[in-house]
Computed example of a mutant assay.
Amino acid sequence: MQTLESLSRKIEGARDIKSVVRTMKAMAAATIGQYELAVGSLGDYYQTVALGLVAYFQSEPASNPTPPAKEPQQVAAPVIGAVVFGSDQGLVGSFNDTLAAFVAQTLGALPGRKELWTVGERVQHLLTDAGLPVTTHFLVPTGIKAITPLVAQMLLKAQEALDNGSLTAFYIFHNRPREATGYGPVYQRLLPLDAQWKQELRALHWPTKTRPQVAGARFPTLRALVGEFLFVSLFRACAESLASENASRLRAMQRAEKSIDELLGELAHQYHRKRQSAIDEELFDVVSGFEALNADHAREKRG
């Protein structure tokens, strides 16, 4: 049976938990701001690099084309590599499960052998359970400054794999922030730099009517632009994944805060009802005692 003391302890405990939840919510909101700022800055830089590639291909001579980037060696069957950005933090709901299911469905529709690189142990286990081969594992970055070294490792490993022919295509999978649902899984095809890749770039339009030109040596310019394109694509994917992770945590904290407020309201109602019942009992005892004293006094007078 609930007592005033037990209800009071529960109310204090709920208030303490609410204080922790509000702190975690504030931290998640502040962290999201940092990653969203980075993603916004990368969006402008990505557009600049993409337009540089558009300028390169539009100015490409028809009779004497610039040598293409180094193609991977021919292999018996296509080998598709993919890097998957997951999360190892708590309170993120189905963040990793949704992403792993999306990866399995997308790669399952592509022919060829698969080789996956994962960022985060939880998504690694989920993909392994789904029957996908995870060959390389990276730790989840702990902040903005840790993204650049991670991306540098990935680019180096990807370049080696493409040069020696162990990979023929390369994809990235991650969660991207969405206003309605908080986040959702997406993917991007990064390599090879083939006709399909050029066609996707041609969808972008040069912002002026003046035909662009490339100053200096063409092939080093292409290598520099492609390197920046790959770097900013991986960096943006990682930043968006971390922003989505914190958005998921923020929504979880908001739900928890709402549940705690509802619990506090119910406990306060029970407490006030119990307190009123105790006051009523005390008043009843006082009235009963007063009536008993009056009855005794009346009997004394009659006696």
Score class of each variant (00 low, 15 high):
residue 191 L to S: 01
residue 89 Q to S: 12
residue 138 F to C: 09
residue 259 S to F: 07
residue 78 P to V: 12
residue 85 F to N: 03
residue 14 A to R: 01
residue 290 F to C: 04
residue 47 Q to L: 15
residue 66 T to P: 02
residue 176 R to K: 13
residue 126 L to K: 10
residue 89 Q to M: 07
residue 218 R to W: 08
residue 110 L to A: 13
residue 193 L to V: 13
residue 96 N to G: 09
residue 298 A to M: 06
residue 195 A to Q: 15
residue 61 P to G: 04
residue 198 K to A: 10
residue 186 V to P: 02
residue 33 G to P: 11
residue 97 D to K: 14
residue 29 A to Y: 09
residue 248 S to Q: 01
residue 242 L to D: 05
residue 107 L to C: 08
residue 79 V to Y: 04
residue 239 A to R: 04
residue 279 I to M: 13
residue 303 G to I: 09
residue 236 R to N: 14
residue 9 R to K: 15
residue 132 L to H: 00
residue 61 P to H: 14
residue 16 D to M: 09
residue 171 Y to M: 06
residue 26 A to N: 10
residue 85 F to G: 08
residue 210 T to D: 12
residue 121 E to L: 08
residue 87 S to M: 07
residue 123 V to Y: 05
residue 184 G to Y: 10
residue 6 S to A: 13
residue 66 T to W: 02
residue 239 A to T: 05
residue 108 G to F: 11
residue 198 K to M: 10
residue 248 S to I: 06
residue 99 L to P: 06
residue 5 E to T: 14
residue 81 G to K: 04
residue 198 K to Q: 15
residue 22 R to A: 00
residue 96 N to E: 02
residue 29 A to E: 06
residue 25 K to H: 11
residue 24 M to A: 09
residue 298 A to W: 00
residue 165 G to H: 05
residue 241 S to R: 01
residue 145 K to H: 11
residue 265 G to L: 01
residue 275 R to C: 10
residue 303 G to F: 08
residue 41 S to Q: 15
residue 90 G to I: 02
residue 164 N to M: 07
residue 105 Q to L: 09
residue 286 V to E: 13
residue 23 T to L: 06
residue 260 I to C: 05
residue 128 T to V: 13
residue 13 G to C: 04
residue 182 G to I: 01
residue 144 I to G: 09
residue 180 A to T: 07
residue 125 H to E: 15
residue 212 P to R: 03
residue 18 K to T: 00
residue 245 E to G: 06
residue 230 L to N: 04
residue 263 L to S: 14
residue 204 L to P: 08
residue 76 A to M: 14
residue 12 E to Q: 13
residue 41 S to R: 15
residue 143 G to M: 03
residue 157 K to H: 02
residue 300 E to T: 09
residue 153 Q to S: 12
residue 211 R to P: 04
residue 256 A to L: 11
residue 95 F to Y: 14
residue 301 K to M: 11
residue 9 R to G: 09
residue 90 G to W: 08
residue 73 Q to R: 15
residue 237 A to T: 00
residue 274 K to L: 15
residue 69 A to W: 02
residue 89 Q to C: 06
residue 75 V to C: 08
residue 76 A to T: 14
residue 51 L to N: 05
residue 103 V to C: 02
residue 176 R to H: 10
residue 244 S to H: 08
residue 195 A to L: 13
residue 39 V to A: 11
residue 105 Q to S: 14
residue 8 S to F: 10
residue 213 Q to S: 14
residue 94 S to A: 14
residue 276 Q to D: 15
residue 243 A to T: 11
residue 189 R to I: 10
residue 152 A to V: 12
residue 199 Q to Y: 08
residue 158 A to Q: 07
residue 281 E to N: 11
residue 199 Q to M: 12
residue 292 A to C: 03
residue 64 N to I: 10
residue 181 T to C: 00
residue 175 N to M: 06
residue 263 L to E: 13
residue 182 G to H: 06
residue 4 L to D: 08
residue 84 V to H: 03
residue 115 E to F: 01
residue 46 Y to V: 07
residue 24 M to S: 09
residue 134 V to S: 01
residue 248 S to R: 06
residue 43 G to Y: 11
